[in-house]
Design a protein around this nucleic acid. Structure first.
Lengths: 224, 224
DNA sequence: CGAAAAACTGAACACCTATTCAGACAAGAA
DNA sequence: TTCTTGTCTGAATAGGTGTTCAGTTTTTCG
C-alpha cells in the first residue's frame, strides 16, 4: 500500500523539471525575460500551466533557478579560462575577456539575467549571481596584486566596477549594435578588456599584450 | 464666448504639473520607482488620480519626463564641474567624480532612473538619458585624447564603460553599504574615479593627483 | 448673474497573468 | 484486476493598478 517512486518515474520527473527550466531559458534567450511567462513556458515544455507549479513554487523561483543555472555556467567558464593562464595577470585578462565573450554571445539572456525589468522579485538571485562572478574576479585581481603586478586597491570594488563596465558597454542600451560581425566583435572585446585591465592598474603597453594573448585562444576556440 | 486661459490659470496649471512631477520625484527618491504609482503620487500632489491624466497621457509619460528632468540636472552639473577645470584631463576627472557624487547622494533615485525594474516601458527615455550623459563624458575623453593626454580609443565605448562602472559599483546591488559615513564616501568616490581615469589611459601616478584635485572642491562644496 | 467651456473628481472599469483546484489520468501495490 | 496514491490538466479565480468617464466644481465672459 506504500506508494514508492520507481526509478523510471524519478527520471521522468527530473526530465520534466529540466524541460521546464530549458523552456524558460530558451524563451529568455530568444525574447528576453518578459517572455518567461508561465503559460508559454508550459507550452514550450509540453506540460500544462498547473504542472509548472508541481516543480517550482512560483514564477520567482523558476526565474531564480534559471539565473542560478546560467550563473554557474558562467562562473565555471571564467575559472576554466583563468586557471589555464600562465600567470595572475593573464589569468585576470582571461577572466575578463571570457565574461565579455560570453555576455556578447548571449546578449538577450545576459541582459535578462543582469538587468532586465521583471515583474517578480528576483533581486536575491541576481545578487547571488553577481556576488559569485564578482568574487571570482576580485580573487583574480587580488592574486595579481599579491604578485606585485598591480597597485594595492579595494579589489571587491574594482571587480564590481569592471563587471559594470563590461555589462553596460556590451549589453546595455548604448552597446554597439553591429556586433554580429566577428571582427567588430573581437575588437570590442579587446577594447573593453583593455579598459578593464588599465582600470585596475596594468600599464597601457603591458595591458595591450595581455589583451591579445587572452583573445587569441578565444578566437581559435570559436574557429574550432 | 471664447474661453481663454487667463494668466492666473496658466500659472496654476503649470504649478500643478510641476507638483505632480515633484511628487513623483520624491516618491522615487524615497522608495524607488516602484512607489511611483498614479494614486499615491496624486495624493502627494493634492490632486485626484484622474487629474494626473490631464497632465500626462500615461504613467509611462510621467516617468519618462521624470527621467528627462533628472537627466538634465545631472548633465548641467557635469558640464559645470568640467568647464571649471583647468585642463582637459582634470575636466574629465571632475566630470567623473561629479557623476559619482551625484549618484551617491541620491542613490534610490539614481537606481530608479538607471536600472530599477518598472512596470511600464521607459526604455526610450532611459536610452536618451544615457546618451546625453555618455555623450558628454565621451566629449571630455575626446578632448583629453586630442590634447595628447590619453591614447587613441573608441571614446563612446569608453564613456559607456565608465558610466557602467560607476553605476554598478556605487548604486548596484553590490555597492558598499556604509556610505553614509562621509569619509568612507569620499574614499569610495576617489577609488572609482581613479579606476575610471586609469581605464582610459591616465597613468597611475598622474591619475591619483587628478583624483585628489577633483575631489577637494566637491568636499568644500559639501561643507559650504 | 447666467451660460458655456474647461478642469477636476474618484469610483468603476479593464486588463493581464500568476496561481489555484476539482476532476481526469497514470502508476504502484495487493 | 482493483484500490490507492501520485501526477497532470486547464479553465476559473484572484489581485493589483493603470485608465476612463459621467457628474461636479471652477473659470471665463457677455
Amino acid at each position: 500500500m506504500v506508494y514508492r517512486r520507481t526509478h523510471q518515474v524519478v527520471k521522468r520527473l527530473a526530465a520534466r523539471r529540466s524541460a521546464i527550466l530549458t523552456a524558460a531559458r530558451e524563451a529568455a534567450a530568444e525574447q528576453g525575460m518578459g517572455a518567461v511567462q508561465i503559460a508559454p513556458v508550459a507550452v514550450r515544455a509540453n506540460v500544462a500551466a498547473g504542472t509548472v507549479y508541481r516543480y517550482f513554487p512560483s514564477k520567482a523561483d523558476l526565474i531564480s533557478e534559471l539565473i542560478a543555472e546560467v550563473s554557474r555556467d558562467e562562473l565555471a567558464a571564467i575559472r576554466r579560462a583563468a586557471d589555464a593562464a600562465p600567470g595572475p595577470s593573464s589569468a585576470l585578462a582571461a577572466a575578463v575577456s571570457t565574461v565579455a565573450v560570453h555576455v556578447l554571445s548571449q546578449r538577450k539572456l545576459a541582459w535578462g539575467i543582469l538587468a532586465e525589468p521583471v515583474d517578480v522579485d528576483v533581486t536575491a538571485s541576481r545578487l547571488a549571481s553577481r556576488r559569485e562572478i564578482s568574487g571570482e574576479i576580485a580573487a583574480r585581481i587580488d592574486a595579481a596584486v599579491r604578485a606585485g603586478h598591480l597597485p594595492q586597491q579595494d579589489t571587491a570594488l574594482a571587480a564590481t566596477a569592471l563587471l559594470g563596465a563590461l555589462h553596460e558597454s556590451l549589453v546595455g542600451p548604448l552597446a554597439p549594435d553591429n556586433l554580429d560581425d566577428p571582427a567588430k566583435l573581437r575588437d570590442t572585446v579587446q577594447a573593453v578588456t583593455l579598459l578593464a585591465l588599465r582600470a585596475v592598474g596594468v600599464m597601457d603597453a603591458r595591458a595591450r599584450g595581455l589583451v591579445v594573448q587572452a583573445t587569441v585562444p578565444a578566437k581559435t576556440l570559436v574557429g574550432a
